[in-house]
């Protein structure tokens, strides 16, 4: 994780002795100046509240009364709380439903659009679901997936498939939620990949084609490797995002039926704002936070995130 390409960028400045040091110090200073505004935002609105949340997780704060210090009681309780671990399991399952399909579809759409449909119109169509907020998307699908009056079952029975329960059955609810989320986000993912594809120099393909490479060979040898920085980005952000699924669940299933969609953020929300157990909710948030850091580190390691095959 040394940032290989960035290291090389200063080769040109490599002088000797004092001169080089001064340049390097200036570069460092410039670097700090460049990140300063972002850093202020990070500290004031992310780091500071996170530290507060860590403090709150050691108290029994109920949002109304002054908090009392209770040490690590919340964490002990969490360890023994089967519902929390169930919710983690449900969330993990949701991520497994969501990420591979969304990423693969996003990539396919991006490649097809790059090859066949460069028009703005197609990209506008693909991103259209993202224009609608999660809440409204949830409501529209609630209507479409209704077992008795919805369009989807009318269509299925029309082609001879028995009606399904979708959000109303414990077996299908989580998949349905994942489906709604994929519908809304796949265009977003595709657009990110598309931006990545556009940055790949075209002459690479032309050269390969001259060498007689097939489409699939070019995809494997050129597209995929050069797309890796974007792929890393898409995977890391969408995995983190989908571990925090909340809006669609809040609108469509509220954790049901029979707790089958009680994802971890819904459980945290219930504890924080419905059960008024902010201390406990903060402790769960901290555990989720640490867990996501570990997941991301693992991903970065597996994906060799910092090297680019181009540089």
């Amino acid at each position: 994780m040394t940032g290989r390409s960035a290291d090389k960028s200063v080769n040109a400045d490599k002088g000797s002795g004092l001169f080089g040091n001064r340049l390097r110090r200036k570069e460092a200073l410039t670097g700090y100046l460049f990140i300063l505004p972002a850093l202020i935002g990070l500290i004031a609105f992310f780091a500071f509240p996170t530290i507060r949340a860590a403090q709150i997780s050691l108290t029994n704060w109920n949002l109304m009364r002054p908090a009392h210090w209770i040490g690590f009681d919340n964490y002990g309780k969490l360890w023994a709380d089967g519902k929390f671990w169930d919710s983690m399991q449900i969330t993990l399952l949701y991520v497994i439903y969501n990420i591979p399909l969304q990423t693969a579809l996003g990539l396919i759409i991006a490649v097809l659009a790059d090859r066949l449909a460069k028009s703005v119109l197609f990209r506008a169509v693909i991103i259209a679901p993202y224009l609608i907020s999660n809440v409204v998307a949830g409501l529209v699908w609630l209507l479409m997936l209704d077992p008795l009056i919805g369009l989807t079952n009318a269509f299925l029975t029309g082609i001879g498939i028995p009606p399904q329960s979708f959000l109303s059955s414990p077996d299908q609810a989580l998949i349905s939620v994942a489906g709604i989320s994929i519908w809304r986000h796949v265009g977003f993912t595709a657009l990110l990949f598309y931006a990545g594809l556009q940055s790949i120099p075209r002459d690479l393909y032309e050269a390969a084609r001259l060498d007689g490479a097939s489409e699939s060979a070019m995809f494997r040898m050129i597209t995929l490797p050069l797309l890796r920085p974007v792929m890393v980005f898409v995977l890391v952000t969408s995995v983190v995002g989908s571990f925090q699924v909340f809006d669609v669940i809040a609108v469509t299933t509220q954790g049901g039926p029979a707790n089958s969609t009680r994802a971890v953020l819904w459980y945290i929300y219930e504890n924080a704002f419905q059960f008024s157990r902010m201390g406990y909710a903060s402790a769960m948030s901290m555990v989720l936070f640490v867990f996501l850091i570990l997941v991301t580190l693992l991903q970065m390691r597996l994906l060799r995130a910092d090297s680019s095959d181009l540089g």
């Binding site: 209507l143 077992p147 008795l148 009056i149 959000l167 109303s168 469509t252």
Partner: peptide, 12 residues
């Protein structure tokens, strides 16, 4: 319960 959907009795 599997048939009822989440829209409530009024819709039906």
């Amino acid at each position: 319960v599997e048939q009822t959907g989440r829209l409530g009795a009024e819709t039906l």
